[in-house]
């Protein structure tokens, strides 16, 4: 080989600040957005920057947060799951379906002990996730289409279970976790925090987490490295469905009712949280940390717009514009990083 005089003593530390910032664009931009939005609302409304309101924001993003944990895994693998909201809905309905309802609720349901109801509901969402997984990996249906079909299937099961009615009762444990609080902190916030932390630990410190990043970074290379890519993709689809199911059960308890189409807005919110946070739609970059920032951006935006007295119809448009801006940054950050790595 060539003489050693050439071996650059370099190392990555020798990089300048500018290339480093450029490569970190996807992490920095969402954070700046969050700070900017918070500052803006704090300035525009005296009621925004209060401890109480922080609690409100946390509670408001909890269900989205729980669902977004699983979705982060999926998007890191460069796949998508459009069935999350429907699966959340059907799981929430299922847990109510297996719980004794008041006599005026006219649903031909099957009351079971609370633990059994919860286990059956979890089994249901895991099974639906498994169907997604098999469709994606064994049959080879693109996840976009597969989960689009699953969205409809889960909605169909929901419809059959509640038949246009509304159920109210859920098992005690779910009720506590969804709507109770401990020491002034809502349980649902604690559950969301634990799940986000758990997701982060799995992604960062486990072998499976590494595989998720590598499959997302370069699927072909993962396969040529002898990884069981299909198994990993299947696993993330199941994880996504189970997180959605948990979010759905607690959501039902939180809202106080289980009914059709209850979670419709959560599909877009969850995808937005993950992507706005800076996790790459092309896979392999980002993580739960990004998702948390994304959740706060959405939470602050939704909550803040309520505080500043704005035309409520305009709010929808503003959210759309912010989402678009975040997507542009996401794609742009990917390009900058590729350039920095060149």
């Amino acid at each position: 080989m060539v003489s050693s005089e050439t071996a650059p003593a370099a190392g990555q530390r020798a990089k300048g600040l500018a290339p480093f910032l450029r490569s970190q664009m996807r992490n920095i931009a969402p954070f700046l957005t969050l700070i900017f939005l918070s500052a803006f609302f704090a300035f525009a409304s005296p009621s925004f920057a209060t401890i109480d309101n922080l609690g409100n924001i946390l509670t408001q993003v909890s269900v989205t947060g729980i669902i977004a944990v699983g979705l982060t895994f999926v998007i890191l693998c460069a796949e998508i799951d459009l069935s999350i909201a429907s699966i959340a809905n059907v799981t929430g309905i299922a847990v109510a379906y297996f719980t004794l309802q008041e006599s005026y609720v006219n649903i031909p349901n099957i009351p079971l002990p609370g633990v059994a109801a919860i286990l059956l509901a979890l089994l249901l969402c895991a099974a639906l996730g498994l169907v997604n997984a098999l469709g994606l990996t064994v049959i080879g249906i693109p996840s976009f289409i597969m989960t689009l079909a699953m969205m409809q299937i889960a909605a169909g099961i929901s419809a059959l279970l509640v038949r246009g009615q509304i159920a109210y009762k859920v098992p005690g444990l779910i009720s506590t976790l969804g709507s109770g609080s401990i020491g002034g902190i809502p349980w649902i916030v604690i559950v969301a925090a634990i799940m986000l932390l758990g997701g982060h630990l799995v992604l960062t410190y486990t072998r499976f987490g590494r595989y998720v990043y590598m499959v997302g970074g370069n699927r072909e290379a993962a396969e040529y490295s002898g990884l069981n890519v299909k198994l990993i993709l299947g696993a993330v689809m199941v994880i996504s469905a189970v997180c959605s199911g948990i979010g759905g059960m607690l959501g039902v308890a939180h809202f106080g009712s289980a009914q059709q189409n209850e979670f419709d807005t959560y599909l877009l919110d969850s995808i937005a949280a993950v992507v706005v946070g800076g996790t790459s739609l092309f896979g392999g970059r980002g993580g739960i940390g990004n998702t948390i920032v994304g959740l706060f951006v959405l939470g602050v935006l939704n909550n803040g717009l309520d505080h500043v007295n704005i035309d409520s119809f305009l709010k929808i448009l503003i959210r759309g514009v912010i989402l678009l801006a975040a997507l542009i940054i996401n794609v742009y950050a990917q390009r900058l990083r590729e350039k920095a790595a060149e």
Binding site: N218, A221, Y224, G284, A341
Partner: peptide
């Protein structure tokens, strides 16, 4: 090489 390497990941990974 492209088919079996992860260009955006460090050498050790």
């Amino acid at each position: 090489r492209r088919a079996m390497l992860f260009h955006q990941e460090p050498v050790y990974k």
